[in-house]
Computed example of a mutant assay.
Amino acid sequence: MVIEAKNLALPDHTQLPESDGTFVKNFQEHPQSILLTDSILPRLQEIHPDGYYCIGQDSGIYWRLTEPPERGAEAPDWFYVPNVPPTLDGQFRRSYVFWQELIAPMIVLEFVSGNGEEERDKTPYQGKFWIYENIIRPPYYGIYEVKKASVEVYQLVANHYEKMVPNSRGHYPIAPMGVELGIWQGNFLLDKEIPWLRWWDEQGNLLLTGDERAEVERQRAETERQRAETERQRAEAVEQENQRLREQLRALGIDPDTLS
């Protein structure tokens, strides 16, 4: 039953459930969200030097008033909203209330463990795909099928979603963010090399996590240390050779200091 909004004060993010009560579908979901967030943060800080943006991870987007409230929300596994404050009334958001803030997410991502039927459901006012396309309307909607290690990305064009075609790198450009989205094979938190959904920049360079950036910096510093050590040893070898030649000259009765 839909509650008539005109008969009551609209609830905010502090009054609505922060979870729909469902279980995480698999142990990769939480690390996957962390990976997406950690690696995109430097890019978002460039886009939003004022810090006005928010990221949701398995958080509810409330789009209508219902009873129970959870029926009026979708909970993408990951989403990003530009140009909104990171907190409301000094509190971190428990959910994203569409009627309170009005700004649509730029992108929502769903991680699929089943057959993807739920994420592609176009049933009016019920199906995820229909709700994202017609009500919440993020410009980009991604469906990541974990078992298939594949991702579909839809772009909102003329009021409906069109399935995007990947570029030559097999990535999907998300132009407003200056990034590309695709599949990466590697190791992150689970101590196992498996496929992950990741970001790249527009030149095809992988966006690194904080730990990966620290490791790159560690390797750079180690390379510089080794270069400096090699240079020191070379200079030392040259000095030793010069000293040997000076001693030979002295043995021949020649003062090396008088030679030019």
Rank of each mutant, 00 (worst) to 15 (best):
Y161M: 07
P166F: 11
N167C: 14
D121V: 10
N134F: 05
D121H: 06
A149L: 13
S113C: 02
R137T: 11
F129E: 02
F129D: 03
I136S: 00
Y132G: 01
F129K: 06
K147C: 04
Y140E: 00
P124C: 09
V165L: 11
G142N: 04
I143D: 00
F111E: 01
I135C: 05
E119P: 03
Y125L: 12
H171K: 10
R137L: 06
F129A: 05
G114N: 03
P124H: 11
V112C: 09
K122Q: 09
N134A: 11
E110M: 06
K163S: 09
K147Y: 07
N159H: 15
R137E: 07
Y132C: 04
V157L: 08
A158V: 10
E152W: 10
M164H: 10
N134Q: 15
Y154W: 15
P139L: 09
L156T: 06
V112K: 02
K163T: 07
N167F: 10
A158M: 10
V146R: 14
Y172Q: 03
E118G: 12
Y141I: 07
I143E: 01
N115Q: 11
P166K: 07
P166T: 05
N134Y: 05
Y144C: 04
Y172V: 07
L156I: 04
N159I: 04
H160E: 15
G114D: 11
V157E: 12
Y140H: 06
W130P: 05
F129P: 03
Y132H: 05
E119Y: 01
P139F: 04
F111P: 00
F129T: 08
P138G: 07
V151I: 15
G114Y: 06
I131R: 04
F111N: 00
E162Y: 09
A149G: 11
V151P: 00
K122P: 00
I136E: 01
Y161W: 08
E162M: 09
Y141L: 04
E162R: 14
R120F: 00
N134D: 10
N159S: 15
K128R: 14
R120I: 01
F111G: 00
Y172E: 01
E152G: 03
K122N: 07
G142F: 01
Y141E: 02
I143K: 01
T123M: 07
R137N: 03
P173S: 14
S150H: 12
R169S: 15
E118S: 15
H171L: 15
Y125K: 13
Q155D: 02
E152N: 14
Y161G: 03
I143V: 13
G142P: 01
S150N: 12
P166H: 06
P138K: 03
N159L: 12
Y132K: 04
R120Q: 10
I143L: 11
K122G: 00
S150V: 05
E118H: 08
